[in-house]
Design a protein around this nucleic acid. Structure first.
Lengths: 347, 347
DNA sequence: CCTCCTCGTGGAATCGATTACACGGAGGAT
DNA sequence: ATCCTCCGTGTAATCGATTCCACGAGGAGG
């Protein structure tokens, strides 16, 4: 592969002039610039990004360590992150943690070894020493979706509190009283917050959330299935199950169907995270939609700010309820109107 | 960040000895090795992968340029590629082409600039000059899923011919005669092959495939919707629509539902690519499943062979039909038994 | 006791870029 | 005509690793 020396030789100038010509440095004569460009053309020269990075100490690369790529929510997040990064002149290297702290740590380590300019993380757990060290050492970093309390790093996430309140209002209006939740791992902020928000919203309606109605999941489909089976085995099963993410909702759907029961007639189902497929499931699933694209963009912008040495602000965007048919339909003439805007999705 | 010089100073040895100690070179005294390791520990030293790459001319990184990350099939492929690569000591940089040749080209270029050791591509089109140049220049490269004829690069893909034959047998057994297909872009091999296989299979049953029953799609949901609307507007709409990928099937489902029609009563639907969601759609979708995980693994292994300077063989794995309910159910007592093994998915 | 290996080690070149510094020549001001 | 500025250019240092080569010490063999 041709190097800058070859170009210099071909153009009859020094490597310094080649470098300057290629980087738009002002003091290069038009003649020299033309000769360099011609040489580049004939040799098919492309600058070696590795060498450039070593010298300039910047890779123009962002690292993204994501909890689980197979989760459509995170896939979309990754996509929007890459889009915004590309628009800003950065590449992104994605590491899939698969909800495993050890894998998360592996990816953080290799990304840091590669001297990425900044790191975007949706932490799977409380944070490995390596990650916390990096944050403390000043590696530009932003948390997205999930975060770790007590670490001085901007957080870009959505707030589902109002949407969960809307959901409970919707369920209450439908006459449901025994509500259960499939929670995410307590080690994650989203895992805890969604349970808290649910409990609070229930309390506002004077409804209890007994321990038997809190199932511990891990954001994967399998756990959704197991927890739902437990709910169905209860002497008095819940009327509606709220899954704290879309994969666990998928597992819940599996479990219900495996028993030969129907949604929503036998048991209702709602999910956190809206994904295209929820429109097409049987029945379409009522879900809480996050502004995923905007989250990805905001996270990249905050990170690039940090890289530039500026503050990089935390961003919280509201989620919203999307009502479909999986929790039952109002039999009264007018549907219950909740105080906050509740969008009814068109079929 | 601590460099090898700092470690050398701390340990009281030369940088050469540090490098040797860290890379398991045999001629380092136990004493020196211990001092180096201790120094590494106290300084929290991590080798700079950028510098190492520059010197050794290898990045231990693979590039993966994928047609569309939001397509669950490719997401799974990307995941299995990363898994196998990690097992072999490589990192993966994923570039999402979004079915756009210009984006594909952009990613190939930046990956090459970063001096990745090898490139995995599922080409969106006939191949940009840059990609063909790279292949000709000897960049280790493997095509996965799709390929470009006439380029000397191993291909790892699945063969859907038999599965498509099984599908047509299944449809014929159900009494369907007017069959239509939503094709992929003619610029892609999978786009062409699936139509060809479908046409051949139909011919074996003496069924025609008139032009009106071939809709041109682009592997995205929107095109599936448009093409299906066209089919429904036909004076004699087809009895079953076969979508050449899962996203176009999703679009087709949309279009059918928008008209207030039902699957499979009013029109049947089948898809190439099986994905977890097809079990949960209304109705569950009959699909052709590719051995996605194995494809990803085989592709990485072939690429690593190429990087090592060996041949790297092409691999073709069979796809198989998974029958669900979206094409109708046999009304006779015993379902039609096709000659090849047809798996009936468990609910 | 001398020679020859082997072993552990350090010095320095190298990878391919960027960039500080030096330098020669052209042109303007005096 | 002389001096001073720029302007364009080249030389060389530098980034952080790996690795070739040389060298000194110590042990084995003659």
């Amino acid at each position: 592969m041709a190097s800058i020396k070859d170009v210099a030789a071909e153009a009859g100038v020094s490597v310094a002039t080649v470098s300057r010509a290629l980087n738009g440095h002002p003091s290069v004569s038009p003649a020299a610039r033309a000769r360099v460009l011609a040489a580049v053309e004939t040799l098919g020269y492309r600058p070696n990004a590795v060498a450039r990075s070593l010298r300039t100490d910047q890779t123009r690369t962002l690292g993204l360590v994501i909890s689980d790529v197979m989760n459509p929510y995170f896939t979309e997040l990754a996509r929007s992150v890459e889009e915004e990064a590309r628009a800003l002149g950065y590449s992104v290297i994605i590491g899939n943690a698969d909800e495993r702290p050890d894998l998360q740590d592996h990816h953080v380590t290799t990304l840091l070894d590669r001297r990425i300019d900044g790191l975007l993380v949706s932490p799977t757990d409380g944070g490995s020493p390596r990650m916390l060290d990096a944050a403390r050492a000043g590696t530009p970093m932003v948390f997205v979706d999930r975060w770790i309390p007590g670490v001085d790093v901007p957080v870009v996430r959505s707030d589902g509190r109002n949407a969960v309140r809307d959901l409970v209002a919707h369920l209450h209006g439908l006459g449901h009283r025994r509500l259960a939740i499939i929670a995410g791992p307590a080690a994650t902020t989203t895992g805890r917050e969604r349970v808290d928000a649910f409990r609070e919203a229930l309390a506002a309606y004077g409804l209890p959330l007994p321990d038997a109605c809190i199932g511990q999941g891990d954001f994967q489909a399998g756990s959704g299935r197991r927890v739902t089976e437990g709910f169905l085995d209860l002497p008095e099963p819940p009327e509606v199950v709220f899954a704290a993410d879309n994969l666990m909702a998928l597992g819940a759907l599996d479990a219900v169907r495996a028993r030969g029961l129907r949604v929503p007639e036998d048991i209702g189902l709602a999910a956190f995270d809206d994904i295209p497929w929820f429109v097409h499931t049987d029945p379409p699933v009522t879900a809480i939609a996050q502004p995923t694209r905007e989250l990805g963009r905001a996270a990249v912008r905050a990170l690039v700010e940090r890289i530039a040495g500026r503050a990089g602000e935390s961003v919280t965007l509201p989620a919203r309820l999307v009502v479909r048919r999986s929790c039952g339909e109002p039999d009264g003439p007018a549907p219950h109107q909740s105080p906050s805007p509740v969008r009814r999705s068109t079929p």
